[in-house]
Design a protein around this nucleic acid. Structure first.
Ligand code: MN
Ligand code: MN
Ligand code: ZN
Ligand code: ZN
Lengths: 155, 155
DNA sequence: TTACAATTGAAAATCAATTTCAATAAGGAA
DNA sequence: TTCCTTATTGAAATTGATTTTCAATTGTAA
């Protein structure tokens, strides 16, 4: 797939080259697709969106690029229990954007929430410290998710 | 696989028949294996343990039986991010046994903790109420997990 | 004991994700 | 620009977990 400049942010090329990688049309395009809309997308969904603009892009490239963007800290990857990974853009700094999820087990809709997490994060810190000490774990991450039925799926 | 009585609890047969199912050797055996040791086991691990006693049991039967035991409320099933389901026995009532998990991302060891969850559960209830109201979800479940490196894997 | 439906196990199918490999394209050097 | 090296790509094959299919077997109510 040949290059076509201008759909990605200017810093992207530099950040890639900084670790010996190359800027390609697929990468620009996938980053562009991911940053354009809010949400948690499966690989197939990203693939479909990308194909609308470049039908020649392969599914494997989408897999590889999403993995790369996660490594670069631009995307987050989640497993919400339906057996397929979901990717979302990290907007602003990682700690700024920190949030938790509410998942509908019927239609797989995912809702971000940020309003109630201050208390949560504070408690998590405390728990983390206690657990670290007790079980001698070096804790790097946590997951808090609520599962239920969204308004539509309750009816 | 022919029946061989006596390795399962007496109420098991009744609970099965109550929903039109049958007591079989495979079911007795798998329940027995799961109740005998603490832990979070993959299907393959259960399969291996079961085969030591009855080499004729098929992997598919283990899959089906574990699913059945989850439906009956005797086992819990978790996904800890390594792409394979893990099953654990629920001991006592579901609320009595309620606990959260600490997972080593290197060796996949899983640790239960129950000591710090009172505060967690209390906060979760509050958050749950707020989220329900705000997003009109009927919340049925939650997941809290910490990920990190266990003592061995830190070195 | 009999009849019938539930259960089983081997093989095949599915599904997400990964690996392989030859062709292509990015980007530094000349 | 052109050349050269090497990263990237995409199609096809592979993997690994789980599910489905289906004929043979087995549990259980009558
Ligand atoms: Mn999110
Ligand atoms: Mn547990
Ligand atoms: Zn829904
Ligand atoms: Zn470990």
């Amino acid at each position: 797939m040949p290059r076509r400049d201008g759909c990605g942010p200017p810093w992207f090329s530099g950040q890639l080259r900084g670790c010996g990688r190359r800027l390609t049309a697929a990468r620009e395009l996938i980053l562009d697709v991911m940053s354009r809309k809010e949400g948690h997308f499966s690989v197939e969904e990203v693939y479909a969106a990308v194909r609308k603009q470049y039908p020649r892009v392969g599914l494997v490239t989408v897999y590889r690029t999403l993995t790369l963007l996660v490594e670069m800290g631009l995307l987050a990857c989640h497993e919400f229990g339906d057996g397929r990974a979901r990717y979302e853009m990290i907007r602003g700094s990682k700690s700024e954007d920190h949030h938790h999820h509410l998942v509908c087990t019927s239609c797989n809709r995912v809702v971000d929430y940020r309003d109630f997490i201050d208390d949560e994060v504070q408690l998590l810190k405390k728990t983390e410290a206690a657990l670290s000490k007790r079980f001698r774990f070096k804790i790097n991450d946590h997951v808090i998710e609520f599962y239920g039925l969204c308004e539509k799926c309750q009816k």
